[in-house]
């Protein structure tokens, strides 16, 4: 499971990949990669919707996301409850209401490794996820979408596909599981991050 989450996570926020490590990479993929890589510190508002057969209606959460290349990300959920998770190369931690940072010891370690992979990909190296997924790219630089399907049968039994789409920034992530469960993330008001707050700097190791 950890591996699965790991692979998912490594793709989600950035989303670049291509069909096969040996096949020629679509030109659009590299263009999108370069376009996304131009922004080293990004803030966005997110809405995450979760569909599950066990839920009466889709579960929705809102908040904002900070992503800093080389340092990791902060996922700040505001609704339905306050929770701030920090994912850095050295591990996951949680920021409480007082701004205190405590490590999450039973968290999924895949999350930690994700940040590292994100960084390498944003630096132009997308090899890691490309080994795990087949990818198809559609659209143009101004409006693109990519569909990732697992190459390994073990993962394909659980995960149906991951779909990413966007323009200059990443705008949407859709994860579909074989169980009928799905998670959809929409980003709005995506912008360059500007100055980080003191807590953000401490949590991400002072960028």
């Amino acid at each position: 499971m950890r591996y699965l989450l790991l692979f998912l996570l490594c793709l989600l926020p950035v989303g670049l990949a291509h069909a096969d490590a040996t096949a020629p990479r679509p030109a659009l993929l590299d263009q999108v990669l370069q376009q996304l890589a131009r922004h080293g510190k990004v803030r966005a508002n997110f809405t995450q919707t979760r569909e599950n057969p066990a839920l009466a209606q889709p579960q929705a959460s809102h908040g904002d996301l900070l992503f800093v290349v080389g340092h990791g990300m902060i996922w700040h959920m505001r609704e339905p409850l306050e929770d701030t998770l920090v994912m850095t190369p050295s591990g996951a931690s949680r920021i409480d209401a007082n701004g205190d940072i405590a490590p999450v010891r039973d968290g999924n370690r895949g999350v930690t490794q994700v940040s590292q992979m994100l960084q390498s990909m944003l630096a132009g190296n997308a090899d890691e996820p490309l080994r795990q997924f087949d990818v198809t790219v559609e659209g143009s630089l101004a409006h693109w979408s990519m569909r990732f399907t697992p190459r390994q049968s073990r993962m394909a039994k659980v995960l149906a596909a991951i779909q990413l789409s966007g323009n200059e920034y990443l705008q949407a992530i859709d994860v579909e599981l074989r169980s009928g469960e799905a998670t959809r993330i929409r980003f709005e008001n995506t912008r360059d991050a500007g100055e980080l707050t003191g807590v953000e700097q401490r949590a991400l190791g002072g960028p």
Binding site: Q48, D83, L159
Partner: peptide, 20 residues
């Protein structure tokens, strides 16, 4: 609150143990 937190984990849970 614990249920809500689990349901709204970043990037969606549902990987690993089943929600039910």
């Amino acid at each position: 609150g614990m249920l809500t937190r689990r349901l709204n984990e970043p990037f969606g849970a549902g990987i690993g143990t089943r929600l039910t």
